[in-house]
Design a protein around this nucleic acid. Structure first.
Lengths: 216, 216
DNA sequence: TGGTTCGCTACACGATCGTGTAGTACGCTA
DNA sequence: TAGCGTACTACACGATCGTGTAGCGAACCA
């Protein structure tokens, strides 16, 4: 994601595609709009990427490689989180959006992240009966932070893709993950409610509400 | 979301729309496919809802009202989480997807949830320097669980929209929220890294990696 | 019993989609 | 200088999109 206009046309197309795919979804962004945003003809887009699917795949590959590269450059410490600098926020957001729209590369990435997460989990003292579910759900939650960029931006009053807002967001996630949000009583109460729900299987599945923020 | 086929045509259209909007996104689902899935003509869809945007808005309204109704029916305990029974999972998933695609109702819902979350937070002993960011990020994370339904289903090997998988998912979220995932040292280290990042503002913003699962 | 409304279908309309084709300008190598 | 591959544009193609219109049959009320 370079800002200059003296880039290869191919790179400009790719950047514009990532931006529009992120903003409108894969189906919502058109070849013509992407080409126009990149300042080229739609034919050139086709010349370089073959098809819309080819363009999307190239974007996936680029985003994945670039994020990996940014990660490689900085391996300060290891624990939990997986967020990158604001520069990579847009790439992350695109990748997760593409994942939601059925990207094969994205699915493979998520699966690999879950596998790696299980290894990470094994090295910690965290308690869980279901390591796979633990890391998968945790991963899904973290990705939610990127998918909800627009909503977080609205709630915080500043773009979480820019430095100040980004710092607030990551700081909040650190606070969230560094303390138990549920008391042991609340957790146990929730577990019991889950057991009740599970044991009523094949029976009537009445709605059930997890101990929770009152309104969502 | 009723399963019967002896529903009003209007209700069948709405249910089919929610299913297809969820699966393919708003732009990806077509009027004709929705009508076909509901077993009616596309003209009838237009007759009842006026336009695609009207249909989407009706779906938003319905999903929001139904979820609220399901919540009203069960107010067992209050704490944090906000998940509903599997029955409502599809509605939640639709609503969040619609939110991502720019639903005004969804945005209002998220804003209201943040406001309510701040009140909830004030009644707890949780520590935070930025209550708004805390609840907003927490909310985004929870929504991520619904958006990543397909990925969680793949990772767990069973549909998290059905009871067994759903229980595993919520149980994992309870485990995640009932213990600190970061040691105080890790948290402080992360905070310091954030400070460094913030203080280097307007300077070169080098990529930075939050203490994290190694690969995502 | 006649008229009006309502649920519903069939079909045609412009617009726009992704794609295909032809052709131009430019730089390379022989 | 001739030949050729590459970057790039212009334009037309079928398909499909959301939408508009006309009309049918049953229900309801006068």
């Amino acid at each position: 994601m370079s800002s200059d206009s003296d880039l290869t046309a191919r790179a400009r197309i790719r950047d514009a595609a990532i931006a529009l795919f992120t903003e409108r979804g894969i189906a919502g962004a058109t070849i013509r709009d992407i080409a126009q945003a990149a300042g080229v003809s739609s034919g050139l887009l086709r010349h370089h990427f073959g098809s819309k699917e080819g363009l999307r795949d190239a974007c996936d590959e680029f985003a994945l490689a670039r994020i990996t590269q940014l990660q490689m450059a900085f391996t300060e410490s290891q624990a939990l989180g997986g967020a990158l600098a604001p520069d990579a926020m847009a790439l992350q957001q695109y990748l997760v959006r593409s994942l939601m729209d059925g990207s094969p590369r994205g699915q493979a990435m998520f699966a690999a992240a879950v596998q790696g997460g299980e290894r990470w989990l094994a090295g910690t003292k965290l308690e869980t009966d279901d390591p796979r579910a633990f890391v998968a759900v945790l991963g899904a939650m973290k990705l939610g932070m990127f998918l909800m960029r627009d909503q977080l931006t609205a709630a915080l009053g500043e773009d979480v893709g820019e430095l100040p807002g980004y710092v607030r967001m990551i700081r909040a996630s650190l606070e969230i993950f560094s303390q138990p949000l549920l008391t042991p009583e609340q957790a146990e109460q929730g577990m019991k409610a889950l057991d009740r729900l599970r044991d009523s299987s094949t029976g009537e599945k009445g709605p059930w509400r997890m101990p929770s923020m009152p309104e969502d």
